[in-house]
Computed example of a mutant assay.
Amino acid sequence: MYSMILVPVDIEETELTENALSHAIKLAKLSGAKMHLFHVLPDASAFMTAYSFGIKEFENQAVVKAEEKLEALIKTIDMPADKLSYSVSFGVPRDEALSLADELGADLIIIGSRRPSVKTYLLGSNAAAIVRHAKTSVLVVR
């Protein structure tokens, strides 16, 4: 059914992450798929342009912290280690997730989403943007 499932997660949003992961784990186990967890950090230069000193150190610390959280999350998943992977990048969640889906050859993207709010309708959500632009199937979990 599936061979590679990409799961973009927000490591600061536990409920969204857990909801998406529970579905991803079930589908990965049923189909024998590999699962790749992915977190996007905001581009540090976007909010530190005036203070360029220390951007690389800030980015490195952010990546280390995000990787630690993803590693801890992966340890809670009851799947063989060779079926699990993760990565962290900087940028726009939609663009980074879609690029990684192509790179990995993901045949399913599973992403958590909240119930839409006025802010979401005006600005759009990451899940909606991924659904609109993905070349592969997307499962949005609420």
Rank of each mutant, 00 (worst) to 15 (best):
H23V: 11
F58I: 15
V64I: 15
A44W: 01
M35P: 09
S52L: 09
K69W: 03
R94Y: 08
P80T: 06
V138C: 08
S113F: 02
K69S: 13
L104Q: 07
I25C: 03
S52A: 15
A129V: 04
L123V: 11
A44Y: 01
R114P: 10
N19I: 04
L100G: 04
T120M: 15
V92M: 10
D78N: 11
A127I: 03
K75S: 15
P93F: 07
K119I: 15
G32D: 13
V92P: 00
V118F: 11
F38A: 02
V138T: 04
L41A: 00
S113T: 07
I25V: 14
A28P: 00
G91K: 13
E15K: 15
R142T: 05
K26W: 05
L98S: 07
K34Q: 12
F47D: 01
I111H: 05
K75W: 02
D107E: 12
I111A: 02
K34Y: 07
L73G: 04
I74V: 14
L16A: 03
D82N: 12
D102P: 06
T120R: 15
K34E: 13
P93I: 07
V88P: 04
I11C: 06
S99N: 10
E67Y: 07
E57R: 11
D102N: 12
T14E: 11
M1I: 07
I25M: 08
P42W: 04
R132D: 13
